[in-house]
């Protein structure tokens, strides 16, 4: 397999990656025609989770912020959307736009307080505040439905079929991923990585690191909110576990498994984890046991993530080729 990669140069890699993405999108485009209802649901859930995991990677992988409670914003986006629809305060289109903005506003408030703290203290404050939001939602029966959650959320007729939900999700996730990609490749994205690598130096070249981190945190919150809205479209219900801390850890594991220093790593991790859950769920009652052990092994032996590992190997062989070519050129 690696022999194939080693014949490619760096530019060709990029085209190769694009080709794979193109093929995946093409296969996805026709998914409703060949997938059963259950598997279509599953693929849609994976797409939602892909966006959720990628949203975490903006502050985590690119900003170097160990956010311990990303599910807060996923949950807030979902709850806001669900409450708008259930109470009929807003039509679906504005509701779907405002809900992620509410998630972003939460992220702005929590982030504004948290980015003042450094390292682990930052992480634990995100945990404390996230759990605070969870606890309030868990008990505020009149507004959020408390521990029962909100069920039978009304959606317009055109969003009732599995395939229309799937296509909506696919389009929104693709657009969001494209936006995130543009952002991480922008001057902001580049300097955010610089802040991750060396915050002190960034201050000396005139970058306001608190501001940079807060923006990353808020953007992560916004896209997590978008994922939350999509989740509501898919499930037509919300419940407190989706913003409990364990949900955040789950998505952290996805990001780490896939590779947090690659753009598509978190997405890949989401596919792998949900795929494993389904696979082991079918064959055994105690799937967590297998999942837990596999995660331990993968994390222990591929700390840079699966996609990170593949990229590393590809880059290594490419470098060899490039160097070889240069040498050959010089000699000739």
């Amino acid at each position: 397999m690696l022999n194939v990669f080693s014949k490619l140069t760096k530019g060709q890699f990029f085209s190769f990656k694009l080709l794979i993405i193109g093929i995946v999108v093409l296969i996805l485009l026709f998914a409703p025609s060949y997938l059963s209802r259950y598997y279509l649901y599953l693929v849609t859930l994976i797409l939602v989770t892909v966006l959720f995991a990628t949203s975490l990677n903006i502050p985590l992988g690119y900003g170097g912020l160990l956010v311990l409670h990303q599910a807060t914003f996923y949950g807030v986006g979902a709850y806001a959307f669900a409450i708008f629809l259930k109470q009929g305060t807003l039509p679906i289109l504005p509701a779907s736009l405002i809900a992620p903005l509410i998630a972003a506003a939460f992220a702005c408030f929590i982030g504004w307080i948290c980015v003042r703290l450094r390292g682990l203290y930052f992480s634990f404050l995100t945990l404390a505040m996230g759990q605070l939001v969870w606890a309030i939602i868990y008990r505020w029966y009149n507004f959020t439905g408390g521990d029962d959650g909100i069920h039978a959320i009304p959606v317009p007729d055109f969003l009732r079929s599995g395939s229309s939900v799937f296509y909506t999700t696919l389009i929104v996730v693709l657009i969001s991923l494209l936006l995130i990609y543009i952002i991480v490749k922008s001057p902001y994205g580049l300097t955010l990585q610089a802040v991750r690598d060396n915050p002190q130096r960034c201050e000396s070249v005139g970058i306001n690191i608190r501001n940079h981190r807060l923006i990353a945190f808020v953007m992560g919150g916004f896209f997590a909110g978008v994922a939350g809205v999509l989740f509501v479209l898919l499930e037509r219900s919300v419940a407190p576990p989706m913003l409990f801390w364990t949900k955040s850890v789950e998505v952290l594991i996805m990001v780490l498994l896939g590779g947090m220093f690659t753009f598509l790593g978190p997405a890949f991790g989401a596919v792998v984890v949900i795929g494993m859950m389904t696979f082991f769920g079918i064959f055994t009652e105690y799937w967590l046991l297998f999942l837990g052990s596999i995660k331990i092994l993968l994390l222990l032996f591929l700390p840079q993530g699966v996609l990170g590992y593949i990229e590393e190997m590809m880059a290594k062989s490419a470098k060899k080729i490039e160097k070889g070519e240069e040498r050959g050129y010089a000699q000739g």
Binding site: I253, L288, L289, G292, S293, K295, L299, P303
Partner: peptide, 19 residues
């Protein structure tokens, strides 16, 4: 090892023992 990895691996132990 990096701290995030420690956190997640000990969490994986949680999953394991739960089952």
């Amino acid at each position: 090892r990096p701290r995030l990895l420690q956190l997640l691996l000990t969490y994986a132990v949680v999953l394991l023992f739960n089952d």
